[in-house]
Design a protein around this nucleic acid. Structure first.
Lengths: 218, 218
DNA sequence: CTGTCTTGTGAATATATGTTCACGAATTTT
DNA sequence: AAAATTCGTGAACATATATTCACAAGACAG
């Protein structure tokens, strides 16, 4: 029964892992069950990965790569923030629908019991978005389309917070329930959410009516 | 050694539970360790609570009660949304600092593996905030201080999302790290964050400069 | 064809921890 | 004061699962 695991088999194993971690959390995920689903033995899993933690990291990295790929679609053309936001929201809504397990596993990372990964993974994951969003906002400030008294980093952080919750709302049970509570019992449509979020963001990033009258239209 | 557990001892047990659940997550939290910390035996824990899940629910309810209490401080006076927001943010910043474990345990609830509680707990927890925020926004719309084309439920949802992340950022390791990344390596000060968030929110809820010029100042 | 190397297998081990229950001590009842 | 009751104790049990390792089976060198 000697037959080196193919590239495809290894990929299948990672996908099985992502599914298991998403479904049962890092603690409860069973290495035996993952191996079983991928059609390999537990033993060989430990030949490729030293322990559960390192296998988990491999799963996360595969999933992060997929997100990174998706976000490369954002076209960097001259535009207002809302133009970028529209693109990003659409991509993330699609990504969440197609890779629900990725988002669910991502939420797992944020859990306290996985603090040992916090610094390392925050860096790896958020650099994809943090840089992108901060740049967009900074440019728009030079542009004059975003108010200048707003700290670009913090504004990008607020922006990312809203997008993160958008995705959790699409994928994680608790957040879905929470969302329903705010929307009269049913999940709102993607299009409607995007529209409202864009409106919210566009307002947020520019001057409010009061500011305009105070500053006389600067 | 027969001595009925006092009210105080039971409270102490719940606090020990909150700490343990916050620190290790529901799965890894050890009933024996909780009992030990509270100075009682495991056996009696099972006389008061049928199993770990129901003890966990009791801990959550204690913690939710505390949050509810804190939010009662919000003064319902006539005000703009930003006035309310300022109050709410201050309260939550203080609450997060004083009851870090509460927030950490709350984050635990949102975890996938606790989906069995999702619907029940989302209802119990979020009704405190969902109603409050939606009302504030609805009133402000009648007031003319919040744009009317914004759905009050969804706007309240965005608002709560930002506040939730604010608290996680203060209490949970992953979110702290993430926050640092957006702010050049160090956690921003509470005052600075509040100021920026208020600015962001005040803009968001009112008309943007473009809208004003389009609508001629309605 | 034979010996050696590589690599997958899955039973066995070690550990952890939720839950139970026989016991005993304090209190209450008769 | 003896019997019955209430309640806390913690050792023991049941279960789950990460990880290891002796073994086997194919590949390959000579």
């Amino acid at each position: 029964m000697y037959e080196k695991l193919t590239e495809a088999k290894l990929a299948e194993t990672l996908e099985a892992g992502i599914h298991e971690f998403a479904e049962r959390g890092v603690e409860k995920a069973s290495m035996a069950s993952i191996a079983g689903k991928a059609g390999i033995s537990v033993g060989v899993l430990y030949k490729y990965y030293s322990d559960k933690d390192s296998f988990f990291l491999a799963c996360v990295r595969r999933s992060v790569g997929r997100l990174e790929e998706a976000l490369k679609e954002v076209l960097v053309r001259e535009d207002k923030v809302s133009g970028y936001a529209d693109q990003v929201i659409r991509i993330l809504q699609r990504h969440a629908a197609e890779h629900r397990d990725d988002i669910r596993m991502y939420h797992e990372i944020t859990s306290i019991r996985n603090s040992r990964f916090a610094a390392e993974l925050a860096e790896e994951i958020e650099k994809i978005t943090a840089g992108l969003y901060t740049d967009i906002i900074r440019k728009a400030q030079k542009n004059g389309t975003v108010r200048e008294d707003m700290d670009p980093g913090i504004a990008a952080f607020f922006f990312d917070n809203l997008l993160m919750m958008l995705q959790f709302g699409l994928c994680c049970d608790y957040y879905r329930e929470r969302w329903k509570l705010y929307c009269g019992g049913k999940l709102p449509e993607n299009d409607m959410v995007r529209e409202q979020l864009l409106m919210f963001l566009e307002s947020a990033f520019t001057f409010s009516r009061e500011d305009v009258s105070h500053e006389g239209g600067k």
